Amino acid sequence: MKHMKFSFYTRPNCGLCEDAERMLRLVAEDHPIEWQTINIEEDEQAHEKYMLMIPVLEQNGSVLKYGNIGYIDILEIID
């Protein structure tokens, strides 16, 4: 299995974002993934693009999953 890197768009006080990051951490315990967390409130371009979609999991400019991101969703992406 190859190492995968993602961009994870989030913002403070976002319950769905916290859940999604928890799922990323769980998957990372068993799979070679890493992510860069980007706070959309600190990035005007990301805020415009994703404010209604967060959390967003993106790779190479492509949105892989957004909104309710669960453990199985992440496994399907990396499989």
Rank of each mutant, 00 (worst) to 15 (best):
residue 70 G to Q: 11
residue 2 K to H: 12
residue 59 Q to L: 06
residue 8 F to V: 01
residue 26 L to C: 07
residue 35 W to C: 03
residue 7 S to E: 15
residue 70 G to N: 13
residue 74 I to M: 00
residue 49 K to E: 12
residue 74 I to K: 04
residue 30 D to A: 11
residue 27 V to G: 02
residue 42 E to M: 05
residue 79 D to H: 10
residue 17 C to L: 03
residue 29 E to P: 10
residue 59 Q to F: 01
residue 32 P to E: 13
residue 9 Y to C: 05
residue 35 W to V: 03
residue 8 F to E: 05
residue 10 T to H: 00
residue 27 V to L: 08
residue 13 N to G: 05
residue 55 P to S: 06
residue 69 I to Y: 00
residue 41 E to C: 12
residue 34 E to T: 08
residue 34 E to D: 15
residue 38 I to A: 02
residue 64 L to M: 11
residue 34 E to N: 14
residue 57 L to F: 02
residue 1 M to D: 11
residue 33 I to T: 03
residue 49 K to Y: 01
residue 68 N to L: 14
residue 39 N to M: 01
residue 31 H to N: 13
residue 76 E to M: 10
residue 76 E to F: 02
residue 25 R to D: 11
residue 14 C to N: 04
residue 7 S to F: 03
residue 58 E to G: 09
residue 47 H to A: 12
residue 24 L to H: 06
residue 37 T to F: 01
residue 17 C to Q: 02
residue 61 G to T: 05
residue 62 S to N: 15
residue 5 K to F: 10
residue 59 Q to Y: 01
residue 79 D to G: 13
residue 70 G to M: 11
residue 32 P to Q: 09
residue 2 K to F: 04
residue 18 E to R: 11
residue 67 G to C: 06
residue 38 I to V: 14
residue 74 I to E: 01
residue 71 Y to H: 12
residue 62 S to V: 10
residue 61 G to N: 08
residue 68 N to P: 06
residue 33 I to K: 06
residue 24 L to T: 00
residue 53 M to F: 11
residue 51 M to T: 14
residue 17 C to G: 11
residue 28 A to W: 06
residue 12 P to F: 00
residue 54 I to K: 03
residue 73 D to V: 05
residue 12 P to N: 06
residue 7 S to K: 15
residue 59 Q to I: 01
residue 51 M to V: 13
residue 78 I to L: 05
residue 67 G to T: 02
residue 6 F to N: 02
residue 53 M to A: 12
residue 52 L to S: 09
residue 73 D to G: 07
